[in-house]
Amino acid sequence: MDVGIVGYGAYVPRHRIKVGEIAKVWGADAPAYEKGLMLREKSVPTPDQDTITMSVEAARHALERAGIDGSRVGAIYIGSESHPYAVKPSGTVVAEALGATPEIHCADFEFACKAGSEGMFVALSLVKAGQMDYALGIGADTSQGAPGDALEYSASAGAAAFVFGTKDIVAVCEHTYAFMTDTPDFWRREYQFYPRHAGRFTGEPAYFKHVLSCGRGLMERANMEPEDFQWAVFHQPNGKFPMRAAKELGFPKEKVEQGWLAPTLGNTYSGSSPMGLTAILDVAKPGDRIFMVSYGSGSGSDGFIWRVTDRIEAVRAMAPHTRAQLEDRPIYIDYGTYAKFRGKIRKLAD
């Protein structure tokens, strides 16, 4: 029995800050970031947007495309490294907003930037196991980068949600594969406001090792080559890494560009490759194959092979397209406003 995506949706906040605006504050070399990391600007959440609110909006779009009521969803898994509460689930708020309570299973996942694909992986597996008819997997983040840190140029906000099911499938999941090891390249300890990373160690032994190993393992399992795919999407900590990973795996630029949102969206952490996937589904044709590999520090990658069905044509227009949201009336802010929005200004205690 085929299992796959029956509805998908994304949410992109409208506020943006340009890399140059951040670089100006820290005396950094903006062109170096723009060219070196292939980042021009990033989305910024307003103080009233968080993992929960963006998850609700993305999930509503996914349900619209799936054409089902929230009450039919059996599980909601939200992957994020910025759940608004340290203790108290994001999932129950989202479930309540979707009308999915009380017969629902909820869990909040955390695995750095991989938490979103993890939620997808588990939701998909439960449907495959016959435990439920529909399950929602969501990746969302309002990620934080410490002031002046390299992460500040990329850490952004967004969400993607997928309803998995067995009827009216939009993209069949043909294969999955996961690859992980203990690799301390990026972390945030309890009570710390900002995450910390290990500089260039986040590259070769971390991102590239896991993304490439997962990608090769996935193709090996499926007995497929890059030529078997029309599209590929990878985790996007910046604009450069996914392009290099694609090249090393043998995917030409044209197959990656549609889902390559980082240059103008930034790194939405748990939302990154899932949002890229939504942008591809917005344009993919029936029969197209999509190759997807996520990455989360610590470290690991989830790989998926999706085959788009005829159904895509019927659901595509039922919710806003991801790139359309990305381009919809962006509101540019200065660093002062950004610092205020992101709680970076020390104020009088309440």
Partner: peptide
């Protein structure tokens, strides 16, 4: 209508969600 955080009970209290309006084109 869009789903947003509407208020919060200080730094340690409950987060209060609800609806806000956004302009549509």
């Amino acid at each position: 209508l869009e789903f947003r955080r509407v208020q919060q009970d200080g730094e340690s209290g409950v987060l209060c969600y609800g609806y806000k309006f956004v302009p549509r084109v």
